[in-house]
Design a protein around this nucleic acid. Structure first.
Length: 428
RNA sequence: GUGGCCUUAGCUCAAUCGGCAGAGCAUCGGAUUGUGGAUCCGACGGUUGCGGGUUCAAGUCCCGCAGGCCACCCCA
């Protein structure tokens, strides 16, 4: 029994699972290239105030889920591991004067986020997100581009049944009057509200809208909907976003009760969820517009929009959907030898292949030839390069492990022949 | 942070009423020493999650802790 174990809510990604993440990262990278989003990297921890100001001091994420770093001294700054990515990116946007770049600034990144909450399947204290941000464009077109990009990711990852929940949560002009109206509505029914909901009525009335309490369903259905109380500017923006998405054939469902857990969202809010998924962890990703955030973090008033997709949940969803698992790369060639103790030759030939661009493994242990070929087969190598007496004439046996055939090849032609055959297999 | 269920070898699981901790898979090795994912044989592998208690005796009963899962809270 090991003495140590990975911290609660974290886990080790062994090569098989890591391969799934690599595959998703590759899809994200390719989409980023096609859509024109450049890579960015910000620290995994920031001054705690960045999150308190950016995410919102009274949100659950900051109030009870923040991973605070124990300060070294009384004078030390308070640091926290990032619970999400947008605040750090916006901090960087302000710090480096990215407002002087062509707007909007389109950036994206894959990385771990940290939240101190109770772990469950698909919910971890360290989890991975692909985050995409477009900062500096207030128009509805960029909203549609972002929403469609996120949806496209799921499609290319192999999840064909992901839909978009879309809502507008207004802006500082129209949201306060709406919240007032909503509060008045629920106040009228205060006596019938469960305790938890009564408390929320004071702290965050919008949250009542996505209560899971079945007793609330009827009340919520009759509640005033924010989409009916948007100001003219927000209304026009929302309609335009819908129109753009319609033109892109993105499967969108307007969800008037969708509110999101971060304070900085304005207008467009969206979530990706899987049709028919069981359990509570069916939110695969989400995002929204954050027109006040740059200013909150010390910059000039600047609009922005972005999303975060949970890679852990995509991996889980793919497994549930019965998708074929990604696998670690397999070698083109496996160098085996009939001679015991000639690791110098084995390594020399493997290295020659590697320098020529061939992925090659070699048995450097004491297995006898039969065992080495067994190993090569199980590692799914395409070729075995077998070293024997012919090596004195500069020749090895090249065995095609799939076809079960072999022939002698001069060392000088070895890499070229393997590469040629690999290429023809890729195309055929 | 609240409530519930669970934890035996690397993995999946057995172990009768409280009575000597096992199997399959995996790993490593062997089956007359230059050719394969099969088969057969063998080896390795455990403080039964950790700590305490009850008992002649605890994997089994009791308590605490840790971890996993489920439902909340919330979210990706």
């Amino acid at each position: 029994m090991p003495t140590f174990h990975a911290p609660r809510g974290t886990r080790d990604l062994l090569p098989a699972e890591r391969a799934s993440f690599d595959r998703l990262s590759a899809i994200a990278a390719d989409l980023s290239r096609r859509y024109g989003y450049a890579g960015i990297e910000t620290p995994m921890f920031e001054q705690t105030a960045v999150f308190e100001r950016g995410v919102g001091a009274v949100t659950d994420i900051v109030e009870k889920e923040l991973f605070r770093i124990q300060p070294r001294t009384d004078e030390a700054e308070s640091w926290s591991l990032r619970p999400e990515g947008t605040a750090g990116v916006v901090r960087a946007y302000v710090q480096h004067g990215l407002r002087t770049w062509p707007q909007p600034v389109r950036v994206q990144y894959v990385g771990p986020m940290f939240r101190y909450d109770r772990p469950q399947a698909g919910r971890y204290r360290q989890f991975w997100q692909w985050d995409v941000e477009a900062i500096g464009d207030a128009g509805p077109g960029i909203d549609a581009e972002i929403v469609e990009l996120g949806h496209r990711f799921y499609t290319e990852a192999g999840l064909s049944d992901v839909r978009v929940l879309l809502n507008s949560i207004g802006d500082p002009t129209c949201r306060p009057p709406y919240i007032e109206r909503l509060t008045t509505y629920f106040e009228r029914h205060r006596a019938t509200l469960p305790d938890l909901e009564q408390a929320r009525l004071r702290t965050n009335p919008l949250r009542l809208l996505d209560s899971k309490d079945p007793d609330m369903a009827a009340l919520i259905a009759d509640a005033p909907r924010i989409v009916d109380h948007l100001c003219d500017a927000c209304r026009a923006h929302f309609d335009a976003v819908c129109e753009h998405l319609d033109a892109l054939a993105v499967p969108v469902r307007i969800e008037p009760s969708l509110v999101r857990g971060l304070d900085y969202y304005t207008r467009t809010a969206f979530e990706y969820y899987r049709e028919g998924a069981e359990g509570q962890q069916q939110a695969l990703g989400g995002g929204g517009r954050y027109d006040g955030l740059v200013e909150l973090l010390g910059g000039r008033p600047t609009p922005g929009i972005g999303f975060a997709l949970g890679l852990d949940r995509v991996v889980l969803a793919l497994a549930e959907a019965g998708a074929e698992r990604a696998r670690p790369a397999r070698p083109a060639a496996f160098v085996a030898s009939a001679e015991a103790g000639d690791t110098v030759e084995r390594l020399r030939i493997a290295t020659q292949l590697r320098r020529a661009g061939v992925s090659a493994r070699a048995d450097l242990g004491g297995r006898k030839l039969g065992r080495q070929l067994e190993q090569a087969s199980r590692e799914d190598a395409h070729f075995a390069v077998i070293l024997g007496d012919e090596l004195r004439e500069g020749t090895v046996q090249l065995r095609d492990l799939r076809a079960g055939t072999q022939h002698p090849v001069p060392l000088t032609d070895l890499a070229r022949e393997i590469l040629r055959d690999e290429a023809s297999h890729r195309h055929g």
